[in-house]
Design a protein around this nucleic acid. Structure first.
Lengths: 237, 237
DNA sequence: TAGTGGTCTAGACCACGCC
DNA sequence: GCGTGGTCTAGACCACTAG
């Protein structure tokens, strides 16, 4: 039997969904603390706790004397983006599945240590090649245990985004990560994929994402051709 | 005239210094919330606010039913380390100043945009080459405005660490960063420094660090030979 | 001046860890 | 059972923003 969820969590999730559904857009102000107190019959302490959590997750910011405002771009906290992926105007940003999500085994291509608990679980993997225009810039491989995301194999990604799917369909946020980064010579296979020479420099990023659900850890291996589009990321407390 | 600092901030800074001075070591439990209430004549809400901030800064973690424990390794939040720098046993970790801290001009080597406010301020720069044993693995260049750190040029680094100096001497923490990462061919100068061939892959990381002091932004350019020691980092909410 | 967020008090009850 | 942290109430006063 699960005990009832805390009030602040209900409010937090309610507001999060309002933001995700576009009812509040970036730059909009969400209801004031006093307004939330009235709407949910809670005290300001509880309302502020809910807002504190949303701030930590990067959804809003507080402005003294004005209110709580939805943040422009979700600050990605370790989610690496190829710079220009969203900004590249005129050129389309494309993604091609080299391997759609499938039940498989844990690979020894994963650089960072896989926990014993994860190893003993079945594994879901998928693999995508990302383009700016027609130029392939990133090969992305992901693995995670098939224990916590119901119907994952049966459903499409929300807006083609894995992390958006986690957030919107499962209310799971990325809360941290460990990375290792290498500059390598491109292998033959990768050189072919990116249309570069073997021995050209290739960026190799290994990531282990922690999420707000203790049972979900995501392991990623990224290979990037940074000659035209450097990899960028930002994160803030 | 500056108004008095909030009580939670006093408690937060007091505890932070106790931890930094080794009065509480990793795995130790700091005083309980009720104990802090008595010691500082505050309520639990205020004590918890101070602890919340220390959690966000990565100094402690709460364990339900037990207490608040000092965290093993300060989770670095964007501060990139060469893996093995501290773990490399038997081999010494060395740092050589190629350029000690000096008053100079803003360089166009800085990749990420320097704010107008910073550009109009004088600039301090320093440059270090980091070794594992006798192997150079990272060239590190740093710039920041000379407006906020009194006596910086006149004093030594705390334990040879810039970030430890910021934290302990100035009570400034890193709270966020923006990075761009590239995999490049080594230039002649860099190949010479690292003892590798030109055209070997070299990792180039450009970072802009935000700190708990709004006036201090740190700009860094890092060049890493990752063939033996990959670059790693971790961060958590 | 009204409304917002920032800080703080003085309680309460519950859930978890440990003896 | 006792002390710890987790959640919550019902207030209070202050500082900032904007009309």
């Amino acid at each position: 039997m699960k005990r009832t969820e805390p009030k602040y969590l209900s409010v937090q999730n309610y507001l999060k969904q309002q933001i995700q559904q576009g009812i509040y857009n970036p730059e909009d102000f969400i209801p004031s603390e006093n307004e939330l107190c009235r709407q949910f019959s809670i005290t300001r302490t509880t309302a502020r706790k809910a807002l504190d959590e949303l701030i930590k997750e990067g959804f809003i910011e507080r402005i003294h004397g004005k209110g709580s405002r939805v943040r422009e771009r979700r600050h990605t906290l370790g989610l690496l983006n190829v710079k220009g992926f969203s900004e590249a105007v005129g050129e389309g940003v494309n993604t091609k599945f080299l391997q759609p999500p499938v039940r498989t085994f844990w690979s020894d291509e994963i650089i960072l240590p896989v926990s014993e608990e994860d190893k003993n679980a079945p594994c879901i993997q998928f693999e995508r090649l990302r383009f700016v225009g027609k130029t392939p810039v990133m090969l992305e491989k992901n693995w995670f245990p098939d224990t916590i995301l119901p119907e994952f194999l049966q459903s499409e990604f929300v807006d083609g985004s894995f992390f958006k799917t986690l957030s919107q369909r499962y209310l799971i946020e990325i809360i941290g990560s460990t990375q290792e980064i290498r500059s390598e010579f491109a292998s033959e296979k990768h050189a072919r994929l990116f249309g570069i020479k073997t021995d050209d420099p290739l960026l190799h990023i290994s990531i282990k994402f922690s999420t707000s659900n203790r049972k979900l850890t995501i392991y990623s291996e990224l290979y990037c051709d940074t000659s035209a589009y450097p990899v960028g990321n930002s994160y803030y407390l």
